[in-house]
Design a protein around this nucleic acid. Structure first.
Lengths: 163, 163
DNA sequence: CCTAGATAGTTTGTACAGCGAACTAATATC
DNA sequence: GATATTAGTTCGCTGTACAAACTATCTAGG
């Protein structure tokens, strides 16, 4: 948003020729390599676009799920997001410290911590969602609608596989 | 895009405590979410399949690039892999400590460290490549050949974008 | 009922990755 | 020759993954 035209410094001839001559071997054919590269690009733009870098993709996802499922337990969150339950503790800690989420001990099962958004969390989520969609739009614009759906479908098949 | 549950007053989660009634909201439609989930699945299987967990995807990529481009400089590696140059130092350190890579100060430009595989590194690469292809195969098997190519094409378009 | 096992959450410890900032040595540019 | 740029490094900070052990609680089998 703020950065319109980067310096666009021209490479020296030496650097340009060397960069162009790199042989990436089998890497460009590998699913993992391409997904990793795509992930990096998305992640960087996310940091620039959403919450001014104070929120990570995992935190956004957690907030969205708590918003859609008030009272959800941490273990359900970690299952849905494929995040380790130990890592989830720190993630929720940060959201709680920020004042966006509260843990409430469940009465029926006192092992559980039900998670809900605070009013501040609700407000934050509205902002986050708007910024998130703006972020998403930059990349969705690279595709036709059918391509985008196809990409999502193929990715979903991959992460639903559990080999 | 919203037509799921009209009465937004979801029961306090205890009712749905059993299993998968979680509403993932907009997340499943987002490119970033699906790529992140796919990445996690791939990364876990990689850890189980390749080098018995002693190698990370970034290390594999680095070794493959050094193999294909003997004498490549660290900055070229980090550009190609989209890894921060500061992070690259530690990555190369680990590969050097393992005895797979050597840094050699360039004569023409003495700032540069040319990277090459040691004989042990060459040998390791042959093993890694075999295990990598085995890992890849598990996931490629989820797709027809044209789907796989389509997926790679769409991902490449994403990571070649630099918004 | 009681015990054994499972589950939710936490803590601890280890390792890795990203990123900014500052630094050195060497090279390039004017 | 002064200045800027580049390659590599180090430091500090934050965040994530995973394993292991631990507490508190719930569930099932006998």
């Amino acid at each position: 948003m703020k950065r319109k035209s980067p310096p666009k410094k021209s490479l020296t001839r030496k650097a340009a020729s060397r960069a162009a001559s790199i042989d990436a071997d089998i890497l460009p054919t590998l699913l993992g390599y391409n997904i990793r590269r795509a992930q990096i690009v998305l992640w960087r733009d996310f940091a620039r676009t959403v919450a001014d870098g104070e929120i990570r993709p995992g935190m956004f996802s957690a907030i969205a799920l708590v918003k859609a499922n008030p009272g959800i337990a941490q273990v359900e969150l970690s299952t849905e997001l494929a995040i380790d339950k130990a890592s989830m503790v720190g993630l929720i800690d940060r959201l709680e410290d920020a004042g966006w989420i509260v843990r409430t001990r469940s009465q029926e099962d006192r092992r559980r911590q039900g998670l809900t958004l605070t009013p501040a969390g609700e407000k934050m989520y509205r902002t986050l969602k708007r910024e998130m969609l703006e972020h998403e739009q930059k990349f969705a614009a690279l595709y036709s609608e059918s391509e985008r759906k196809q990409l999502v479908t193929l990715l979903r098949r991959l992460h639903d596989a559990q080999p």
